[in-house]
Design a protein around this nucleic acid. Structure first.
Lengths: 338, 338
DNA sequence: TTGAAAGCGCTAACAT
DNA sequence: ATGTTAGCGCTTTCAA
């Protein structure tokens, strides 16, 4: 691989001049510049990003710490973040923490060791130590999806409570009478906020909240499936179900079908997230859609600001609105024959 | 941030000795070693991975170039690869090429600039130039899912043709009479092999292959949906459908439902990939499951071999078996009431 | 067993 | 406008 010195030799200039043209920092004579460019092209020279980073202490790399990028929600989020980062000139170092602190910490350290310019994180409940280490290392952090309550750090999230309330109001509008809710567990996660939104909507409509019909379970299809089965066993009259994530909602739909009921008819279901597949499954999933694009763009913008201006941290979370995507599972659209 | 020099000073040794203990390369006196370790702990010192990489020309970083990690198949694949890489001591730099060569190339260069130790790639059809650049840079490449036919390069794939044949045989076993197939387009992709497997199974069973009922479309739910609609319009008697990917299969199920038919009863459907959600949707998707774990482990193992032994490239592709996962959409299991 | 010194490939003053 | 030089933080040969 040709190095800068080779280019310099070929162009008959000093190595510094080569840097000047690759960086566009210094002014360089037009003719010299042309010669250097020619040499670069001829040798197929590319600056070693590592060496450059070492010298500039800027890696143009972002660490992205997720619980699990195989989860459709995080898959779509990470893809959108990757895209926004790419557009902003950053490459993403990906880490799945699997919601185990030990592993999350390992990734944080790996990121830090590699001198990332910042780290974007969807922290597990017990990640606080991770934040400490991050701020101690003085590297910008922005959290998304889930927000730390203990450490006040920049965050970009969606208005979970309002989204959940809107969804629940929609359910109420369907004239339903027995309301259940499934959400994820965890303090820091949006699960609480979504459950709270559900409760609030019921209260606002003077509907009794039966907390036995509120389940906090694993953030997975299986979690949703099992919870729904149990809920339905406990209270067979449930005819409205708000689920705090689409992944769980898919499991819920499965359980509803298994129980011999028809989602959208016997029980109205609304999910949360707006994963792409929700549009295609049967019944089509009514859901509170998150603006993945905007979310990611905002996260990266915020990150770039923090990188350029490390001291001026605005810990006020950016809150983006959700949009209720009305489809079949709530009972609105005519169900396709199945 | 404390540097190596600080540790050296605190421990009263030369910087080199600090390196000796962090790398465990040189022998170091027990007592000295203890002092250094203590200093490291006290200062919270961590070696700068960039500097280390620059000196050793080993970054312990792998580039992962995918078409689109928000696609459930690639999401699960990438997550499994990330996990295998993590276990092997590598961190993953993620890039979504979006199947556009320009963008793929940008990522290849970005990876190369960052001195990745190797790149794992699911190349688009026109990625050959990317391979050239990679081999020119003498960095190990292993491709997975899709395999280049032009450049003979290490690859880890699944036995697509056999998987598809097995699936189709299963469909035939259901006593179906009118067979359709949807697959992805593209030379390099496994789409061709899966379609070929479908055809082969029909031939082997002396069933006429109606190539009008074979559609190559976009690798997406929408692609599957639209193709199925069109196929059903063209030949309403279709009662068996093999789909070359689960994502497309989800779209196909949607179209079947929309047409007033019942998948699993009126038309038997088998997908390919084995994405997790297939287990939960209605009807539960019968599919040819890929061994994500094994695939990823093999990819990373192969990569590690290549890194340790760059000249000894074994271009013979590793071919892993699939497993037919029988559920509802083919008509085997009793359909849950919907 | 420990230390000195020359890189790794680049940036960024500073000097010319 | 161009070249010189001293790092960036680490590894590694070589000598002590």
């Amino acid at each position: 691989m040709a190095g800068r010195a080779d280019v310099a030799r070929l162009a008959g200039v000093s190595p510094a001049v080569v840097s000047y043209v690759t960086n566009g920092s210094h002014a360089v004579g037009a003719e010299t510049r042309a010669r250097v460019l020619a040499a670069i092209a001829e040798l197929g020279y590319r600056p070693n990003a590592l060496a450059r980073s070492l010298a500039t202490s800027r890696s143009h790399t972002l660490g992205l710490l997720l619980p699990d990028s195989s989860n459709p929600y995080f898959a779509e989020l990470s893809s959108a973040i990757e895209d926004a980062a790419f557009a902003a000139g950053f490459t993403v170092l990906l880490g799945n923490g699997d919601d185990v602190v030990e592993r999350e910490m390992t990734y944080v350290r790996t990121f830090l060791d590699r001198q990332v310019d910042g780290v974007i994180v969807c922290p597990s409940n017990d990640f606080s130590h991770g934040f400490d280490e991050l701020v101690a290392a003085a590297v910008p952090v922005v959290s998304t999806d889930r927000v730390s309550r203990e450490s006040a750090l920049p965050a970009v999230v969606v208005d979970n409570e309002v989204g959940a309330r809107t969804a629940t109001e929609h359910l109420i509008g369907h004239g339903r009478t027995t309301f259940a809710c499934i959400s994820g567990h965890g303090d820091m996660s949006p699960a609480q906020a979504r459950a709270a939104g559900w409760e609030q909507a019921l209260r606002d409509a003077d509907i009794d909240v039966d907390r036995d019909l509120l389940a906090f379970v694993d953030f997975s299809a299986e979690g949703g499936w099992e919870a729904t089965r149990e809920l339905l066993r406990r209270e067979p009259r449930i005819d409205a179900l708000f689920v705090g994530s689409d992944l769980q909602a898919v499991g819920a739909l499965r359980a509803i079908a298994d129980s011999g009921r028809t989602a959208g008819k016997d029980v109205s279901v609304v999910g949360f997230d707006g994963i792409r597949l929700g549009e295609y499954i049967s019944p089509r999933l009514t859901t509170v859609a998150q603006p993945f694009r905007d979310l990611s763009k905002t996260v990266v913008e915020l990150m770039v600001e923090l990188i350029d201006n490390p001291d001026q941290v605005d810990t006020e979370p950016r809150i983006l609105p959700t949009r209720l995507e009305i489809r079949e599972s709530c009972g609105c659209l005519p169900l396709a024959a199945t």
